[in-house]
Design a protein around this nucleic acid. Sequence first.
DNA 1: AAGACGTGGAT
DNA 2: TATCCAAGTCT
Length: 359
Amino acid sequence: MQDSSDRTRFRQRLLAWFDKHQRDLPWRKNRTRYRIWVSEIMLQQTQVVTVIDYFQRFIKRFPTVKSLAAAEESEVLKFWEGLGYYRRARQMHAAAIQIVKQHNGRFPDNFDEVLALPGIGRYSAGAILSIADDQPLPILEGNTVRVYARLMNFQEDVTKSASQKSLWAFADTLVTRKRPGDLNQALMELGSEICNKNTPQCMKCPVASFCLSLQRGDPRQLPNKGTKRVRYEALHQIAIVIQRRKRYAIRLCGPDEHWTGLWDFPRFTAHTGDIADKLKQVTQETKQRTGLSVQLGKPFLNLKHAVTRYRIELDCYHAVSVEGRLRAQQDLRWASLDELQELAMSVTGRKIVRHLMKA
DNA sequence: AAGACGTGGAT
DNA sequence: TATCCAAGTCT
């Protein structure tokens, strides 16, 4: 892969493989910048199988930049419900508004202008413009880090900025005017289908003859990602499902907490102590947070879920409030089951609602 | 530059 | 079960 004739043969082999094996994915049908943008944002840290249905529904409802810009953020979030990393949806919506104002509703085709949009970094800008417009821009993400590191037999810790620089430089040597969009997609697809993390299929690899780690080392040992350990933290929380007649008290998550922009049942940290003590604490805390005096019921659901480095155990309590005003704040409201169906909630919030529907 | 951000699948 | 991590970006 040192000289350009090597790289030419590399591209030919890889593209031939891609022509034969590429998956039939909805965003490959009609490659406008807008559609590729949506797919790329959804695909950030998210597996292809998960994205497919979300993409179809999203594009059907928001077929153009303008339709997305015209929508309420709450509706955009509803279409994102369950996908995670909700900031992506809020930033994409903000970017759509920006595109209408600054670019007359046309998704820009200039790299720096695309990079300037919220939620789009170097990878996404390169991916969108190479895939949609065949602009010769390099990409570097999870799959290609692995592919490049193995091809180069690159031993350094790939999380270091110096390594990132080398990997971007390598990516840059790969991409040319020859079908850059397909090349980039082929590199990623090779990384996920053949050059995968645990069981690389080197026997099936169309570019094995170029792979230095296969010749001189062990592909499975690469990439070297350093030895940083995530410190998981166990959390015990309480969710209160406060009912009055047919409605439930919910609150909008704010900017400094998980699930910003989504609705959730009032939640707080569970206290330790004996049972009676705990229930008293829960009632007090509920009063403090919502302004409501509640008659606490039984815990009806226990959920375990993980959010980033937190492992959360959530005890859900029924509670009834017959009188009193919900604290006069924008982030609190009453909602019927029908209304809860329409609002964007986190997966745990949605599980609670599903449970209420069944009961 | 290390850590936050969601969720579900794989090992 | 615990841990990693998947088409990253932002702070």
